[in-house]
Structure formats: structure tokens, C-alpha cells
Amino acid sequence: MITVDHISKRYGPVEALKDVSISVPRGELFGLIGPDGAGKTTLFRMVVTLLLADSGTITFDGHDVVSDYRHVRRNVGYMPGTFSLYQDLSVRENLEFFASVFQTTVKKNYDLIADIYGMLEPFADRRAGALSGGMKQKLALCCALIHKPLVLVLDEPTTGVDAVSRREFWEMLKKLKAQGITILVSTPYMDEAALCDRIGLLQDGKLLRSGSPQDITANFDRPLYAAICKEPYPLLLALRKLPELDSVFPFGTALHITAKEQLDLPALHKELARQGFSDVELQPIEPGVEDLFMHLMQ
């Protein structure tokens, strides 16, 4: 449905995207994952015909996004990272406006947004500017959907949103995917990677890896361990001094350790006990997407 082929883009001295290629088949939920400044928004703006690449091509539903931008604009629903609806129009007016721009009516495609708009209906006459963050996000999604697009492009829809609203949002995406809509979404949250069919890891304009979360982590090529103890910070400092270890980072309740080769765990236990760490639990673990991303960043 979307093919990004060797795309590069510079802003003055900054290389925003470096030779990025991605392919997203019809009906897939694809997540572009990376921190601020990785190039996520730049890439999305090219896909939705708002920005030109320096080199490379993008096709959308078989059409070139530059020469056939009209086809893209008719068939894409785009939700930018900043709220860009009309603050002084009401919820209903915003929705009707977007429907009319696409020469359709709210009624005609109502089934697509019924679930989401249902939560907004009590506030239909409220000005969009006076909605809460979560409500604004739902309205923006409705407006992006009202012309029944082939593809939804969502730029960091869950940034700054609390953990409960984030879950609700991903539930909505799952339902939209089930209706056959192709979804391209970006996020800085690693836990959302697992909810995508496939992901791309973007850092400093470079696509470090893309594939299903399972395939991506299968590539992790060093031994990985978790260490749990009561006082993780002193343990972290002590582990960093050991030459056989590659990296030590906090991961939730545990420290994750990569090593150059398989560790002799009993010997490591003994060494840590000698240094006064007697309550350390050490075990080999399977890598997650976050482990791999951090490994590729170094």
C-alpha cells in the first residue's frame, strides 16, 4: 500500500532522513518508533504530500506521491502531532467541515466512527478548543476517518497521553485495522511496539531495523541477562566496572546486562557477594525490542 524507496532529506546541515526504505502492505498496522528528532514527522509529511524529498520515491496505493498527489490526498487520513482542528468550531462543526471538504457526509461514513464519536457526542456543541486532551485526540481521529480513507497516518497520537488513554487509543486502532484500513503510526513509547504488526526503528534519520517485533528481536546477537536486587543503583555502578560486561542499563525493576560472551554466573555471583551484594538474582533472558534498539544505538 505504501512503499518508501531510498528517501533522503536535509534541512541545511541536518540530515533528517538518510536513505530510508519501508514497505507497508495493505491492511497492516505499521509502527515507526524513535525519539524526538529521529525523522518520524519528516517521513510522514512526505507520505501525505506535505513535503518533498531530496531524493528517493514514495508510492501510495500504486501512485507516486509527488506526481499523483491528488490521489493520496483523497485517500489518506492524516492526524498531525499537534492538534490542528478548528479550536473555535464545535465538535460537530469540525466533523461536518472535514466531511464536506472531502465531498461526503457524516451520515454516509458514520459506521466507521460510531464507536469513537459515541464518546464525544455528549459534547457535540462544545468548542473543540475547550475539550480535554483525550477528547481532542478522539475528535482528530474522527475527522481523519470521516472520508473513509484507505490509509491512516497518525503522528505520535499518544505522546503526553496517560497510560489508560493510550490503551484505549490502541484498542480503537485495532478495530480500525479489522475494518481493512492500513495504519501508519509513530510513537516514542517502546511498549506500543508489541501492538504493531511490523515496526521500524528510527534514530537520527536512519532506519536501524524493520520487521515484526519477533523477527527484530531474533537478531539480537549477544548474551543478555537480568539482575534484580534491592539497591539497583550501587549494583549498576559495580557491574559497570566489570570488564567482561558490555553494557548495563536499568530496565524497570531489573538491570539488563549484555556481555561479550556467555557469562559464568556462579563466578559472577561470587564476585558480587565479595563486593557486598549478597541478594542479587541473575538470570539469562530473551531480548525485547527495547534491548535491541538500545544495542543498535550504541
Binding site: D36, T159, P188, Q203, P234, F293, M294, M297
Partner: peptide, 24 residues
Amino acid sequence: DEPTGGVDLITRRQFWELIYAASA
């Protein structure tokens, strides 16, 4: 107040190490 929003994975951890060090 949300000091690590939008920050990359490694920097986020380095930031928490500053927090640990302050706490220590």
C-alpha cells in the same frame, strides 16, 4: 515534571542515573 518526554532510550536511562546519583 515529566523530565524524559520524547528523549531517546539511552538518554532516558542516563537521566535516571543522574536522579539515582542525586538521591544517593
